[in-house]
Amino acid sequence: MDKQAIVTQLKEIIKPFLEHEDDSVFEGINEQTNLVDELSFDSVDLIEIVIEIEEAFEIKIEDSEISTIKTLADMIGLIQTKQANA
């Protein structure tokens, strides 16, 4: 799966979490956007996003890997690594 396709799918996963934000918040997301500091995602949000990612990309993310996710780039890297090793 190429990177752009992953980004597109990840943004679709994140979008419902920003349903009450201004559109500019979603539109301003880039690979370096910090999910906690900039989007105010809490631990429950991150777990819910991980569940969505596991389902969408058919991968399994370990508990210990969740804490390494800070940005979209971290997610992309994790997905690419998992898919490469599948």
């Binding site: 419902p16 979490f17 349903e19 009450h20 934000e21 201004d22 105010s40 949000d45 819910e48």
Partner: peptide
């Protein structure tokens, strides 16, 4: 309602 949820980041 949506302004309140935005203010307090009440997701889902």
């Amino acid at each position: 309602d949506s302004a309140f949820m935005r203010r307090f980041k009440l997701r889902k």
